[in-house]
Structures are given as C-alpha cells and as structure tokens.
Simulated assay, not measured.
Amino acid sequence: MEKFNFKNIKRKAGKLFENRLQAARVLEVRYWEPSTLIEVDLHMPFADIAKWDEVPYIKFKVDDLTFRDYTPSGWDAETSTCTIYIDAAHKGAGSTWARQLETGDTVSYLKIGSTYHKPVATSAVVALGDESSMGHLLALQKMVLPNTRFSGGLVIDNEHHRRLFHEYFWSPLEPVARRDNFGHHSLMEWVLQQHYSIENTVFYLAGNNIMVTQLRKMLRQQGYPSGQIKVQGFWS
C-alpha cells in the first residue's frame, strides 16, 4: 500500500492543478527603474478577452502550488493580448517569478475571474489604490465612459515612478506620494483636497488589505455610504 505522507498529497494536488492550467506567452518585459515595478505584455490565445466587461484578474502559477492574482491593465480582444503590472518591491513568490520572466517565456495560469468592479452610472467614479493595484485602476479607467467621470489617486512610494507614470499614461489618476506605511492616510488627505460630493461619488478601492480596510473606514467617517465604496484588497 502506498504511504500517504505530505509529499504524496502535495504531488497529487499538484497534478490536479496542472491538468487545469492554461498557457500564455510573454511578449515583452519592461522594468521601471528602479526595477521594483515590472510591466509584462502577454499573448493569451485561450482567454475569451471579449467577455471582460468587469475588471478581471488572472491567477498565475508563480511556483509549485503557489498562485498570485494580477489584473490586466488593458487588453485587446482581436490580438488576445494584455498587460499586467507587478509590484516587486517586496520579497515573495510573485516578485521572484516576475523578476525571472523573459520575452518568449511560457507562463501558466489557473483561471481568469472577475473582481466585480464595474463603473456604475454616476457622475463621479473615483479610484484609489497603490502600486499593487496600478493595473486594476487602469483597467477601471478603460471601462469608464465618458472618461470625464473618472478620477483618482494612486499612492506610489518612489518619486521616479511617479514621474514615469505621468510620462507613460494619459490618465486622470494622480500619483500621490506615500507618507505613511500603507498609504491610506496619504490617499485620504488627497481625497479631502478634491472636495467630492457625497451624493454622487462612488469610490473603488484596490490595493494592500490594510490600506483598503482603513481607507474604507475613513471614507465612512466622512459620511460616504457603504454602498458607494467598492473594495478589492490584495495580500502583500
């Protein structure tokens, strides 16, 4: 009789996941100097990109039995391509995987899901996030029409990355300097300077879990109803 130890269980679980994986090809990898932010273009021939009508996420395999979710910032259904941004400023399986990617590599993903973030019909759609949610916020911007309804703040620690964001994108998103560890105080200070109306403003929060949780609490204290605050937290 086969001995069922932890290694056997892990091996069997790995085979189950492998049977469900889809493949994508790396078209290009670009590093923002300093290289703690990595931009990756992907060809995803098995993805039904035309159905991405909510901000999606892709669950990539980054190591054995280890997966990380990344949000495509933009996509083209005709060419089956998309771009993801990876915050590699911290140590972790996702950061290690991203730093090893090269043009022509094949990467595996388990599934494509929805974050259920989709702009509602209101005059002010406000996105708030950090480096880990750059792709998420840019994807939301892509969906807001007319684009004059969209604005937001993106807390970025590195000053050079803030400048690069302005250079690379046409976006109403404003890079905000990080003055606290998780970024919620910096973003709340920025929000208060904008004087948003309580009646018709809907906030979309995405980023590290602590920032998202605390920022939601701060917005509620300012009088914004919970129904006008959409959240998507990421583990760091």
Rank of each mutant, 00 (worst) to 15 (best):
G94W: 03
V62Q: 02
S80C: 13
Y109H: 03
T83H: 07
N208E: 15
L128Y: 11
I58H: 05
E39K: 12
R178P: 07
G135Y: 09
F203Q: 12
A206K: 06
V62D: 05
N181M: 09
D53P: 04
H161C: 00
I229N: 01
G135V: 07
G113I: 07
I49C: 02
I229T: 04
A93Y: 13
K7F: 09
E54H: 14
S151V: 05
P119G: 04
K59S: 14
S197E: 14
A127W: 02
I156D: 02
G92S: 03
D130A: 08
F182M: 08
S151G: 14
W32A: 02
Y109T: 05
V202I: 11
N200E: 15
S132W: 07
H166P: 00
T36H: 09
V26M: 08
G94M: 12
N147F: 05
N181V: 13
G233H: 11
H136E: 08
G92T: 00
S226F: 06
Q228M: 03
G223F: 06
F60T: 06
V191D: 03
T71F: 04
F60H: 07
K230L: 08
A127F: 01
T148R: 12
S236T: 12
L192A: 06
L154R: 12
I156K: 05
I156M: 14
P175F: 12
N8L: 15
K15T: 06
G207I: 07
S35I: 00
D105C: 11
F60D: 10
F150M: 09
V155W: 07
T122E: 15
Y85F: 15
V55N: 06
A77E: 15
K61D: 05
R149L: 12
Y116K: 14
I86M: 14
F46V: 00
L16T: 06
V120H: 10
P172A: 09
H160I: 10
D64C: 06
N181R: 15
N158I: 11
E78N: 12
Q222G: 01
V26G: 09
N208V: 12
E39W: 08
Q214Y: 02
M134Y: 02
D130C: 09
H117P: 00
L192I: 02
K142C: 03
V120E: 15
G14Q: 15
T106N: 08
N200Y: 11
L137Q: 13
K118S: 11
S80W: 04
A206S: 15
I210M: 11
E18Q: 13
Q100E: 14
K230H: 11
M188W: 12
S197N: 14
R30K: 15
A88K: 03
L21M: 15
L215S: 09
F17V: 03
